[in-house]
Nucleic acid binder design. Sequence first.
DNA 1: CATTTCGGTTAAGTATCACTTGAGTGAAGG
DNA 2: CCTTCACTCAAGTGATACTTAACCGAAATG
Lengths: 316, 316
Amino acid sequence: MSKRMPPLTALRAFETAARHMSFQNAAAELNVTPAALSFQIKSLEEHLGAPLFVRGNRSVRLTEAGRVLAPGTKDGFEALGAAWRAAYRVNDHASLTVTAGPAFTATWLAPRLYSFARAHPDIELRLSAGLGLVDLTRTEVDVAIRFGYGPDPPELYSEKLLDDWVTPMMTPEMARRHPTRASLSTAPLIHQEDIDFLDPPCDWPAWFRAAGLAPRDWTGQRFSQADHAIDATLSGAGVVLARVSFATRFLAEGRLVAPFRPALRTLAHYRFLCARGSETRPQIAAFRHWLVEQVAQAADHESDHDLIDPHDVHIT
Amino acid sequence: MSKRMPPLTALRAFETAARHMSFQNAAAELNVTPAALSFQIKSLEEHLGAPLFVRGNRSVRLTEAGRVLAPGTKDGFEALGAAWRAAYRVNDHASLTVTAGPAFTATWLAPRLYSFARAHPDIELRLSAGLGLVDLTRTEVDVAIRFGYGPDPPELYSEKLLDDWVTPMMTPEMARRHPTRASLSTAPLIHQEDIDFLDPPCDWPAWFRAAGLAPRDWTGQRFSQADHAIDATLSGAGVVLARVSFATRFLAEGRLVAPFRPALRTLAHYRFLCARGSETRPQIAAFRHWLVEQVAQAADHESDHDLIDPHDVHIT
DNA sequence: CATTTCGGTTAAGTATCACTTGAGTGAAGG
DNA sequence: CCTTCACTCAAGTGATACTTAACCGAAATG
């Protein structure tokens, strides 16, 4: 009959029993005798002042109160278990889990994995591709690489990795029809709106201004998602002002070309993120160091083939 | 050095210590001596194989591992505590927490609260206005009243409360300028798009068809949110086809009028929801019964002043 | 600079509680 | 009808969580 927390072992006994819907199996899982488990449940029910299970003769059913208690206890013990495993992994200097967006993982990270494995053969690197914003202080992910801008969250260690740029892209076929920068004045434009919120804006009017071309009509298809805009471009619908990082794959395959300067630097960039304090853990430090190295190499490489012109840019 | 779960009491000791950042205070909270707490933490660290606190001489700091473990254990014990309190409340037949949307709470529920208090003076009714979809099986909310359509979630008990209707509404001034149904053919229309997904559709074309009026051009302002559309209507921008439940307040105040039939019934409706099984708990049953009663009375009342014409409707 | 104070630690002793054993119960199932 | 199975009960035991009391070292105090 107490509102105070019951003994935790009794709660765990209940959680296990509710999960198995059997005292027998629950007792087996906890490595105790059924009698012990029965007693624990009973003491919990005394604490609560009401039964949690209806004892059928060869089975048990949850009561209303039991049904309310079960999901919460399950959540609770799962959280505790996850936390414990996460803490345990801190001492494990042999593995490292990194999450990044699918595009970045596939086009940037995966091809370089062998290089990392060679440099750090003792570290097992696990990749987790996904856009969901994982909570680095609460999950088993050590490092996140995310694209974004704005102030760094204070509870995280953050380091800028890569700038990103937007530049006109089109199919080679489209490029033949519009061989000069000026000919873009008549090309069908594809607008991708999820980068418009950036400041300075990285949209077509901004690019025309930066290119020294006269403003034109800004009609054309508008997409709110980058991959849709690139899909449309791939199908020959027009010329898109796309983020280089999203399109590297298609540029490399020759399905898209980016013949015209300037490229506009977006304010947003790729960032290395980990829980503040964990940047000194050996595997994380090693990975960060390696990443920065790779970024530097890649930058050299890219300025070679003149895809991007860093000098031409920076509208304010 | 074990990956197995540590003793739960030790985990709780750690959680409390991490929250207070002081063994002394943590011991006080748990009603034990500092020595006991110190020992618990020590045993936990042995289990983990690494220290969780750095012992400064008059203070403690978390280690890396401690920083990883702390938030998860906090979450876990909070979940357990919430679950326990929720289970405890099941036996508490004296209070009842209900969540509903802000509009429904303000215009429908709140004015009738006194009636409920008179009918059930022993039940303390708590209201929680908000649109967030609370999880009735995991939180301390007993009952939700939500607007929606589609199949009922299987883990919930669900009962239809109120149909909703859409009918043309405008300011009295606008109604003077458009005194007949037919005159709506030239009135400025306001479109509210969040009800279009309903099947059968409840948009202006459907209403004109149901009214036996000729189709017209469907230009006019379009809003994705109902309150914006009603705001525009209130400012005299045109005639809106709005859900009655959203506008009752303005209709009652005379700021809007709804002179023209028919009213179209939407497929969506207000529903009473609670965790399956808990519909038999006395306060919940009492509240449900009272709600149904109130709904019946309101229906009588509304058909009085001829706001809605249930016979005229049902396009398929 | 000595002294106090405070927060944490250690070690030994103790009370509690979680568990086991073994017998018991009542209904489902052959 | 008798067996079996899942849970319960009571008594005894062992682990564990806790207390007491002494100890330690740095920060605060005079």
